[in-house]
Amino acid sequence: MESPLFYELRKPIKIDPQKTYPALFLMHGMGSNEQNMFPLVQGLEEQMFIFSIRGPISQGSGFAFFTIEEYGKPHRDVFRQSLSQLTQFIDDATEQYPIDKSQLFCLGFSQGSILSMSLALTLGDKIKGIVALSGYIPKILSEDYKIQPVDHLSVFISHGEMDGVLPYQWGVDAQNYLKELNAKVSFHSYPEGHTVSLQNRQDLLKWIQEQIQQ
């Protein structure tokens, strides 16, 4: 698939030509890369197409999806471009691969978490579920976008209680915001910093398995 965004794909070894499959779109955090996300979902590749997307901006030894104007506030134009590119990426992937369009999921950590929630809120019923690890919902969404209904949406939010990068309260606020919009939210807190613990990984894998079996 041609795309301005670099990505890697994991998929079932044997594709049944009579079937379509769920799809999971992975987005990493600032300064990381697409390879960093696959260990979180190892074991799911035989059940779904997994696209791990690299941020388009060089950031140290890794990459980012957007830059920051100030703490908790992305640069507006950069954020909008990244969200637009990701939206197009999802549309292109669902057209070019045997994907069940009713079973699209986004999973992200930190910046990727912010974008996962943003995609759900701007794409509405295109997205069935999201996993948002240590992120927040930026104000730019309510300022610049029409928030779509998400009463169909299933959400797994997790946040470290000792997160020194993005405050724990921001995760709580994201939970409350999505619940007010009638999304089905499962919130998980862990005695960790800005990271994904083993228990967190086990919990999110169980949650994804439950969603794709429904």
Score class of each variant (00 low, 15 high):
residue 192 E to F: 01
residue 154 S to H: 13
residue 81 Q to E: 15
residue 172 V to D: 09
residue 46 E to I: 04
residue 161 E to L: 14
residue 151 D to R: 03
residue 34 E to V: 01
residue 20 T to Q: 13
residue 50 I to R: 00
residue 160 G to N: 02
residue 197 S to A: 11
residue 23 A to H: 12
residue 41 V to R: 03
residue 136 Y to D: 03
residue 185 V to F: 01
residue 76 R to L: 04
residue 144 D to F: 10
residue 213 Q to K: 14
residue 14 K to S: 14
residue 141 L to H: 05
residue 63 F to T: 00
residue 53 I to D: 00
residue 170 W to D: 11
residue 70 E to F: 14
residue 192 E to S: 15
residue 58 S to D: 09
residue 17 P to V: 05
residue 197 S to V: 07
residue 201 R to M: 12
residue 45 E to P: 08
residue 2 E to A: 01
residue 10 R to H: 03
residue 17 P to E: 12
residue 214 Q to F: 07
residue 71 Y to C: 01
residue 23 A to N: 06
residue 61 S to T: 12
residue 213 Q to N: 10
residue 190 Y to A: 11
residue 154 S to K: 08
residue 27 M to C: 05
residue 4 P to C: 01
residue 46 E to W: 06
residue 139 K to N: 08
residue 46 E to A: 09
residue 128 K to A: 07
residue 58 S to A: 08
residue 162 M to P: 03
residue 156 F to A: 13
residue 69 E to K: 08
residue 112 G to A: 09
residue 156 F to H: 15
residue 87 T to M: 00
residue 10 R to D: 03
residue 165 V to W: 02
residue 134 S to L: 08
residue 164 G to R: 04
residue 116 S to Q: 10
residue 12 P to L: 03
residue 55 G to A: 01
residue 136 Y to L: 06
residue 122 T to S: 05
residue 106 C to H: 12
residue 23 A to G: 12
residue 109 F to M: 15
residue 163 D to T: 13
residue 74 P to A: 00
residue 41 V to K: 05
residue 75 H to Q: 06
residue 187 F to G: 15
residue 139 K to L: 09
residue 110 S to H: 09
residue 46 E to V: 07
residue 185 V to N: 04
residue 5 L to P: 11
residue 206 K to I: 06
residue 204 L to M: 15
residue 186 S to F: 09
residue 20 T to G: 01
residue 133 L to K: 07
residue 131 V to Q: 10
residue 162 M to I: 06
residue 166 L to N: 07
residue 92 D to S: 04
residue 136 Y to E: 01
residue 173 D to A: 08
residue 102 S to C: 03
residue 180 E to K: 00
residue 133 L to Y: 03
residue 149 P to K: 06
residue 63 F to I: 10
residue 91 D to I: 15
residue 11 K to M: 14
residue 35 Q to R: 03
residue 128 K to R: 15
residue 204 L to C: 02
residue 171 G to Y: 04
residue 168 Y to Q: 07
residue 160 G to H: 00
residue 189 S to T: 15
residue 164 G to A: 04
residue 129 G to T: 13
residue 61 S to E: 12
residue 127 I to Y: 04
residue 162 M to H: 11
residue 12 P to K: 04
residue 109 F to D: 11
residue 52 S to P: 00
residue 89 F to V: 07
residue 62 G to T: 07
residue 67 T to A: 03
residue 90 I to W: 13
residue 101 K to Q: 14
residue 87 T to L: 00
residue 148 Q to E: 15
residue 126 K to N: 15
residue 31 G to D: 07
residue 50 I to E: 03
residue 124 G to Y: 06
residue 82 S to V: 06
residue 153 L to G: 07
residue 63 F to Q: 01
residue 80 R to Q: 13
residue 139 K to Q: 10
residue 188 H to T: 05
residue 169 Q to Y: 08
residue 98 P to T: 09
residue 106 C to G: 10
residue 212 I to Q: 06
residue 41 V to I: 11
residue 116 S to P: 03
residue 139 K to G: 13
residue 67 T to F: 00
residue 207 W to F: 14
residue 150 V to Q: 04
residue 116 S to F: 14
